[in-house]
Design a protein around this nucleic acid. Structure first.
Lengths: 113, 113
DNA sequence: ATCTTAATGATAGTGGATTATCAATAAGTG
DNA sequence: CACTTATTGATAATCCACTATCATTAAGAT
């Protein structure tokens, strides 16, 4: 149940993938396992705006996500824009940030022209 | 029902605020009105990671949001980090982005020291 | 004012994700 | 192996945001 793709997955996606290998698997076990993995630190919750939580392994380098609004696919984006601290008002402390890019992925862009 | 605060609001928040002025108001009307306003373009949906949709007036300049993980308050953040296009892989087209900063707001930072 | 049509409020219903329950199965242990 | 304990699968139950329904009320029109 541990392996993952190059993008964060929904519990249901994980369930479908895992069920191919372990047909008796139940969805409850997926949720239980994910919860445990997050507590233990081996998995991370990925909340993209407007969607229910996805999950990814936690040993990935800091990255963000791109969501194609046409095929709904999510991609990992490496690299970061400039420093974000300078955007904060006086007295605010920054501890985390989430950047989601939206647009058309390479495939959907190609199919369009 | 139209006026709003300096931050995006949940339908329920809007409902509570409006009910003070118009005690007979029902929650259905809030949802209906918001839907209409979004269609007409006078309001905008704000999806912050992990939360249900908030709403804000659409005549605001481009901005992002900061969410205090202590008091849960959301603040508008003006300004933008560097260009985001350069983060994209070949062939990807960027049409929108969402940046959410997390941390401790000025009030919660102060109360802490 | 009378008739017609649109907007509203109360609330039941829906949809989707997640959790609880509990009997069945699998793991450990000695 | 016999027994104790933990894990699992199936599914009912829960939670929440949102929508549908429909009788009532308010607006408009003449």
């Amino acid at each position: 149940m541990l392996s993952e793709a190059g993008r964060p997955l929904f519990p249901k996606e994980l369930f479908d993938k895992a069920q191919v290998l372990l047909p008796s698997l139940g969805i409850a076990t997926v949720f239980r396992t994910l919860k445990k993995m997050v507590e233990e630190g081996s998995a991370k919750v990925v909340n993209l705006p407007g969607d229910s939580p996805r999950y990814e392994r936690s040993d990935l380098a800091h990255h963000h996500h791109f969501k194609c609004f046409e095929c709904e696919s999510v991609f990992e984006i490496n690299g970061s824009p400039g420093p974000l601290e300078k955007l904060l008002p006086e007295g605010f402390q920054l501890t985390d940030h989430e950047i989601t890019l939206f647009g058309r992925c390479a495939d959907c862009s190609a199919k369009r022209s």
